[in-house]
Each structure stands twice: as structure tokens, then as C-alpha cells.
């Protein structure tokens, strides 16, 4: 069964990555192109060489970077799908519901921990925002918040399981866990260091870029969860016994 879940996850994830990449071309690239032009113009005005924004002398054109967007999200989708398949195999019999319901629950959890939570504290930025000198710190904070978000989800699941054997009703238990998760997330967001790098692009461009980035990431996880859920539910209907093995 693990093999089937992993194969399904990898296939679905890669397809989701390609679709997210294509969506990114449509909704993200216009503002990204604008930001790249602005960055080059700012560098030229400051008397820097045009390549100052690039930290590399490898010649990659904008066209190749756009192809790289689709290829990169396909690869990332593949990795995400493999993990999704693995966790889904773990969730059988541990998370309530059929294949479709479990997949949607997992998808919503992942979207909250990997997209929404980091976006609230360390939102995606277009080129030209962010001091290259602080990229190490920003990467650590970003990954740290994602890790804390995943731990928070695991703690919520454990807590809900522990409460289930107690005297509380289901609405009371779910409200309790919900309040605890929101409070913990709020503490994390308030407590983690703020990134104070200057934002040198127009606010309107920044907003459009962030919406495009959110759309791209949401598409990746929505498609992964929905397609994985559909396929799993279908497999369970056709072979309920085999699905349990």
C-alpha cells in the first residue's frame, strides 16, 4: 500500500507542480518582470554594472528563468507529492474519514503550515526586495517558522487524540484545540524576529506579486490534495480490502 500511495503522490505532485508553474507564468510573471526591470534600472542609475543584482556570471536568460519556473515547480511538486503520499499512508486509520476526506484535511493542514503561516510573517518578495547580506538569516527564519508550523500541527493532532478519550463533547474538544492552535500561532508570529530589510518597490507592485505567489502556491497544494483524494477514494471503492493492506 505504501508503494501505491508514494507513486500516486509523486505523479499527482509533479502534475500539480506543472500546473502551478503555468499559473505562475500567467499571474506571477507580469509583476516579476516589472520588478526585474526596476531592479536593473535602479542598479544602472546607481552606476553599478547591470549584473549587480545577479550574484552569478552564468548566462541564464529571462526566458530560461521562466521555463525554470515551470521545471522548478514541477520538481518541487514531485518532492511535495512524495511527502504527501507518505503522510497519507501514515494517516490511514489514524485520521478519520475516507481517502477524499483525509486528503483534504492533510492538504488544508499543509497549506496553513507551509503557505499561510510563513506568508503572514515572512511573505514572498519580488526581486529587488531584501538585502543579499541577510539572505542566510531570512532563510533560517523562514524554514524555522515552517518547521514550527508543522510541529504545531502535530501537537494539535496529538492533543485532539488525547482529549478524545476524555469527558468533553466533540464541539468542545474541537473548539479547545482550535483556540490553542490559533493562540500558539499568534505567539509564534509575534515572538519571531521581524525582517527589517527595506522594500524598494512600489506597494502596488508588491501586492500584485504577493497575490500571484500565493495563487501559485495555493494551486500546488489544492491540486495535490484534491487529485490525491479523488484517486485514493476511487482505489478504496474498487478494492476496499487491498486498500487496507
Amino acid at each position: 500500500m505504501i508503494g501505491a500511495y508514494l507513486r500516486r503522490g509523486v505523479a499527482v505532485g509533479m502534475l500539480a507542480g506543472i500546473l502551478a508553474g503555468l499559473l505562475g507564468l500567467a499571474v506571477g510573471e507580469p509583476s516579476l518582470d516589472e520588478a526585474v526591470r526596476l531592479e536593473a534600472a535602479t542598479a544602472a542609475a546607481a552606476g553599478d554594472e547591470p549584473a549587480a543584482a545577479d550574484d552569478s556570471d552564468v548566462a541564464i536568460t529571462r526566458g530560461q528563468q521562466k521555463a525554470g519556473l515551470v521545471a522548478g515547480s514541477a520538481l518541487l511538486g514531485l518532492a511535495a507529492g512524495a511527502v504527501f503520499g507518505l503522510v497519507s499512508a501514515w494517516a490511514v486509520g489514524r485520521v478519520a474519514g475516507d481517502g477524499w476526506t483525509r486528503s483534504l484535511k492533510l492538504g488544508a493542514t499543509v497549506a496553513l503550515a507551509l503557505v499561510v503561516l510563513p506568508a503572514l510573517k515572512y511573505p514572498p518578495n519580488p526581486p529587488g526586495v531584501g538585502d543579499p547580506a541577510t539572505v542566510g538569516t531570512r532563510t533560517t527564519l523562514y524554514l524555522g517558522l515552517i518547521l514550527l508550523g508543522v510541529l504545531l500541527a502535530a501537537a494539535a493532532w496529538t492533543g485532539a487524540r488525547a482529549l478524545a478519550s476524555g469527558p468533553l463533547s466533540r464541539p468542545a474538544r474541537q473548539a479547545l484545540v482550535g483556540v490553542a492552535v490559533v493562540a500558539a500561532a499568534a505567539l509564534l508570529l509575534a515572538g519571531l524576529p521581524t525582517v527589517a530589510d527595506p522594500v524598494a518597490v512600489p506597494a502596488e507592485l508588491l501586492w500584485r506579486f504577493r497575490l500571484g505567489a500565493l495563487a501559485t502556491q495555493t494551486a500546488l497544494w489544492t491540486f495535490t490534495a484534491a487529485a490525491f483524494g479523488l484517486l485514493t477514494a476511487r482505489a478504496e471503492q474498487h478494492a476496499p480490502v487491498a486498500a487496507a493492506r
Binding site: 505562475g24 525554470g68 519556473l69 514572498p124 523562514y142 505567489a213
Partner: peptide, 13 residues
């Protein structure tokens, strides 16, 4: 460089 746009849009610093 190749994954530059993917990094930005997928939220990586």
C-alpha cells in the same frame, strides 16, 4: 539562476 523565478513565486527567500 535557472530557478530564480520559481524561488520568488514559491515563497523562498
Amino acid at each position: 539562476e535557472l530557478f530564480h523565478d520559481a524561488r520568488h513565486l514559491l515563497g523562498f527567500p
